[in-house]
Design a binder for these strands. Structure first.
Lengths: 246, 246
DNA sequence: TGCAATTTGTGCGTATGTATC
DNA sequence: CGATACATACGCACAAATTGC
């Protein structure tokens, strides 16, 4: 018995793409580890009830995404599982990405100075109306956009943040230059929404696709709120992982 | 300026479906209120850069979902805007993630015995073909459906689980009766998808809405996998909270 | 070394679905 | 409502690379 996706032939989504998503989902959730061999095409075709060509097209799409690699005569192998993003007190995008052998980058999309409204003032523990720096950034792994994030800082604490971030592409480094040596994740709240038009364009995904919305507050070493972040994560490119082990 | 949705011509997703999702996203995000009239088909066709037939097909699909209604000679109208509950910083369901299996109201939807496929065998560390109990359950809070979950157990370990769960409404209690006194969450993986038709009905949400997919494995006190769960959470009703302290 | 089995890669003909005009 | 062009999916066959005996 097949456990998961039943193929929908009249949904306006090509069968090869449905198979591609199904395979990606299995790889993401750990059914196949990195480097392991996939079942042969003929077997997958039988399992999905389609022609081998159709499976091949799904594999080809995943190959061009760098997720699979096929060797003639040997088999098809998991080249690099889609990124998983472990959430914990020391969550840092660049470390997570480089820890999975990918090249991280942070691109500055835009920035502004604005006054703290009630919500932000509460999140950052500052008086209403405090001047904040708002930064829009796109985080990229191996050239593939992963997260669109909006970050708020108290302007007085990191006056030169925008220039430093634009130069280095790393939030941690930019904060270091402002004299902030370390920080910890306080709490992370996760929900999902349909992607907004602007984010869809930045992430290069279609409208109507879901994104995970990750809200978090970082604390400095004194336990004072330093940064409030609202990230929108491309759901099909990344998986959030919460370790339950303690 | 109109944000131009880029239509992928060779993405394996039919153009009419991309337009359908784009329109749905606009309705969800409140660009059109309930009862308001959509632009005429010719105008939409021009905006998306497609033939009017293609727009008509998108509208037909939305009509069959009950989202739009077309009146000859008058126009196309928003019949029912998908409902959405605002998510605030004080959403209170954080316990459900850490103690997801102790949800106060668990309703048994169905159950079956099936053989472990490759994926489940791997997750549960059992041989391929091992008999598993699959349980479909709906978890409700304050009368509002929150999560549709599918749980798999090795049948030999909990032979009477279904009856016990149906009687008590509690997974923990049902496991206790099978002699399993305690278990721990190994890891939780979170991603987001568009809701499937069956889940949409159970959760009482519209098609096209996102759900958070929460996959987890529970270990018994010996560290052996006991249960694999795949929960679909109504994203607009619930927020997952991860504390940074772990 | 040879040879068979397995697995990916490729070509072609056909039927159906999709989108335009 | 056709007529047309293209993408999608299928079925069959065979070539090329790898592995194991």
């Amino acid at each position: 018995m097949t456990t998961h996706t039943t193929l929908d032939r009249n949904a306006g989504i090509a069968v090869w793409r449905q198979i591609m998503e199904a395979l990606k989902a299995e790889i993401v959730s750990g059914a196949f580890e990195k480097g392991s061999r996939l079942p042969p095409e003929s077997e997958l075709a039988a399992r999905f009830g389609v022609n081998r060509h159709t499976v091949r097209r799904a594999i080809a799409a995943l190959t061009s995404e760098g997720i699979l690699r096929a060797d003639q005569g040997r088999g098809t192998f998991v080249a690099s599982a889609p990124l998983s993003y472990p959430i914990g007190p020391r969550t840092r995008f660049s470390e997570i990405v480089s820890g999975q052998d990918r090249a991280p980058d942070g691109r500055l999309i835009g920035s502004a100075v604005e006054e703290a409204d009630a919500f932000l003032a509460n999140q950052l523990s500052v008086p209403l109306g405090t001047l904040l720096i708002r930064v829009e950034s796109l985080r990229v792994a191996d050239g593939i956009p992963m997260i669109v994030a909006t970050l708020w800082f108290e302007q007085a604490r990191v006056p030169n943040f925008v220039a430093d971030y634009a130069e280095t592409g790393s939030i941690t480094t930019a904060l270091n230059r402002a004299g902030i040596e370390d920080y910890n994740r306080k709490e992370t709240r996760i929900t999902a929404e349909l992607v907004e038009a602007r984010d869809a364009q930045q992430l290069g995904i279609s409208l109507g696709q879901p994104v995970m919305v990750v809200e978090s507050v970082n604390l400095d070493t004194d336990g004072r709120p330093l940064q409030y972040t609202r990230g929108r994560v491309a759901a099909d490119r990344m998986q959030l992982v919460v370790s339950g082990g303690e």
